[in-house]
Design a protein around this nucleic acid. Sequence first.
DNA 1: TCGTTGCTTTACCAATTGGTAAAAATTTTA
DNA 2: TAAAATTTTTACCAATTGGTAAAGCAACGA
Lengths: 209, 209
Amino acid sequence: MTNTTPKKPSRIQTRNRRLILDAALDVFSRDGYGGATLDAIAKGAGLSKPNVLYYFEGKTEIYVTLLSQLLETWLDPLVELDPDGDPVEELLGYVRHKLDMSLELPAESKLFAGEILKGAPRISKYLRHDLKPLFDRKCHVIQDWIDSGRLAPVDPAHLIFSIWATTQHYADFGAQVAVLLDADDPSAGAHAHLEQLFRSLLVPPLPKD
Amino acid sequence: MTNTTPKKPSRIQTRNRRLILDAALDVFSRDGYGGATLDAIAKGAGLSKPNVLYYFEGKTEIYVTLLSQLLETWLDPLVELDPDGDPVEELLGYVRHKLDMSLELPAESKLFAGEILKGAPRISKYLRHDLKPLFDRKCHVIQDWIDSGRLAPVDPAHLIFSIWATTQHYADFGAQVAVLLDADDPSAGAHAHLEQLFRSLLVPPLPKD
DNA sequence: TCGTTGCTTTACCAATTGGTAAAAATTTTA
DNA sequence: TAAAATTTTTACCAATTGGTAAAGCAACGA
């Protein structure tokens, strides 16, 4: 009875794979896939390059592992969108949650953005298999809310795009925001503005009947 | 009387520099600065690598030239925001213009996005010297509109961020949009949605008195 | 204590990269 | 047309890169 999943990882394996992935997040998000080097990752992890390659088959495997693990965390707030909650509050809560993630985990957001920017060559299958079904499900939820008159009639897909775009902007374009904004911390202003933006869009025109 | 700007460029110079910059736009926007190679650019331009280096001092100079030229084009619609026009229509026109640019020139948008994503290490001075003053000026215009009651009270800076984020999303995250959207062409839906999004935000609560 | 297994290091390599030197070819100018 | 200037090619290089081979070292069960 040969086991395909080769044993369970040792303590050292767990620790070092973690070290490598943490360092890789820094390097990949700063330099992009093409600009990142195994040496930089190894140095960041405090390991030698061949030692890094003992834990991962190559640069690409590190990158893909990182991204696919990331995708889960990243989609979690969308999963939590509750069909039984109050539509406007559910969506505004999602906006808040997404914005907080962008402000607190900019490296993760940037890593993902960089991959999409280049056409998602290495994670398009994850997009299709994980993201797309979830996206469709949530579009349907939003459409139901609209049909029941508890949400202004909007295009669900484009609404989600807008939420993603506006929230991630503070992470992905953080360098630009920092230059343009005199206040050092954009978070308060961003929260207030996005609340206003999406509330004015989403509140249904007439009371619930 | 020695001239610092060394003569005017010959016809060949003009043509080949154009060829190189066009090819570089493709390569840099696809592979990022780190992933791009001079060989790829040279091949794209139909020139040999040393020949490319006859026209530009190095990879970095090509990249910076491209970005600084691009910045001008990219900021042009913002320049055109007219203080004497109707506030809501001016801003919605800006949204439309910006969205059209993203849909029609995705490579340019991606190149710029990639640079900002990495912290704008090579164009931060352009951001400070060109973008920031323009940005401040236009924030002031918007604030005046608000103060005169012709625009809903919004944070001008964050409003501009939202416009940039939502419009550029269709270029920068085009790969993701393509996977998620069943319709092949997002442009119609995007235009309608952004019109709705920003109109509902910007229309002032009360008539002009 | 010995051997097996898992982890790490040293030394290395082939390919690619940005860039150069200088000759050759071409175009322009006188 | 001949000289001068410009453009292009050929041949090359040092540095970096992703990756490998294999020996050394550590841990652990029998």
